[in-house]
Design a protein around this nucleic acid. Structure first.
Lengths: 193, 193
DNA sequence: AAATTAATGTGACATAGATCACCTTATTTA
DNA sequence: TAAATAAGGTGATCTATGTCACATTAATTT
């Protein structure tokens, strides 16, 4: 259950088995069925989730009712509404399960306590968050500079694992185009081949 | 010269004067005139810059020659092409000065050394990067969900200091609209008042 | 202070992508 | 396995925003 997390942490930070055993005690386990919410808009995000199995998404719904996906998280990724988690303010994101999932949850107080007691964790999270920032900045620049088709192709290249597991209309709402437009792009791409 | 940085670090991290004196030795000072580059596309980003005075921007130029601004950085902010800085790969961003600037530069080896020798720095940077990520995620979601006018208004509300110091066509290229469209939006807004 | 360069404004027109309406095909659920 | 629900496709039309071309004003530079 904790193997994946252990490996991920050791990839960036030297942590020994005793420390990791201690770290385990800060987490609670949670299983969700497909379509269940981990977080709903308006609630405070009490947990950060490490995905051990399955697939989650975070998204907003705008006034017109359109969904905009911020993130997919499969095995080995973290998921939360970071803004709400940090500030304790109501979330503007929804998080739900695209498949049955098994999660390791940690509250903000536990998280901070864990970093205090195991200083290498601060380093691990700094690196994780830093990589996440780099990826988000790239996506932002691409969303400003590229056409719908380029953004779609880049999604395929960047997240090949997701492509198999996520329905097209969600890819559309991640890429930032309507599902109809994505469908037409796919048709064109197929025709060219 | 180092006062601003000292205050910023102490806002999130308890660091004493001796430690800070030591930290100072990792930085080099740099002044740039308006319009000078700190970094050009294709070069490796060797320094992270803390802005002590003045205003910088980072941006890409797409194939059509359009500029897309990723970030403005005024007094108290950090600026770099984080991706290039971390990986040592050629940058896809340009960074230049919008005003005469005074910067504190730190190389990646110095930065990592400093965090090793002064562990509270790791915490400071984790927090800084985390806040940066939250802001970038918000901007990304807004760029997907909002109209040109909404994005412009949000820019005005979020960065009032910048509005006075940055020309309109750069605000346009931060918000993600053409300078002509921004000009028309401003006309409409003025007419409604 | 004249000359140059940068910034801004505005009309006419073009276009990528959204929206709407409806249909077909999968996948769940009972 | 039938019924219900979700996903995906496609034509017709609409629209926000981009693009181009040129004019005006402001800010630098010599």
């Amino acid at each position: 259950m904790f193997d994946l997390l252990y490996n991920k942490i050791r990839a960036f930070s030297k942590i020994d088995e005793n420390q990791f055993d201690h770290l385990k005690t800060f987490f609670v386990l949670k299983k969700l069925r497909k379509r269940q919410y981990l977080l709903q808009e308006g609630d405070v995000c009490k947990y950060q989730a490490f995905v051990d199995k399955g697939l989650l998404r975070s998204y907003t719904v705008d006034e017109k009712g359109n969904e905009h996906i911020l993130q997919f998280a499969s095995e080995g990724w973290w998921m939360a509404d970071l803004s709400s988690y940090l500030t304790n303010e109501p979330s503007f994101l929804n998080i739900d399960a695209l498949e049955d999932v098994e999660l390791l949850l940690i509250t903000k107080p536990s998280w901070e306590q864990a970093m205090k007691e195991i200083p290498q964790l601060e380093h691990y999270f700094r690196i994780i968050i830093q990589n996440h920032l780099v990826a988000t900045q790239k996506r932002l620049m691409q969303s400003l500079a590229e056409s719908a088709e380029e953004k779609y192709n880049r999604f395929l290249a960047t997240y090949p694992e997701c492509v198999q597991r996520v329905p097209q209309h969600m890819i559309a709402s991640y890429v930032g185009v309507s599902r109809e437009t994505l469908s037409r792009i796919r048709k064109q791409v197929a025709a060219r081949k």
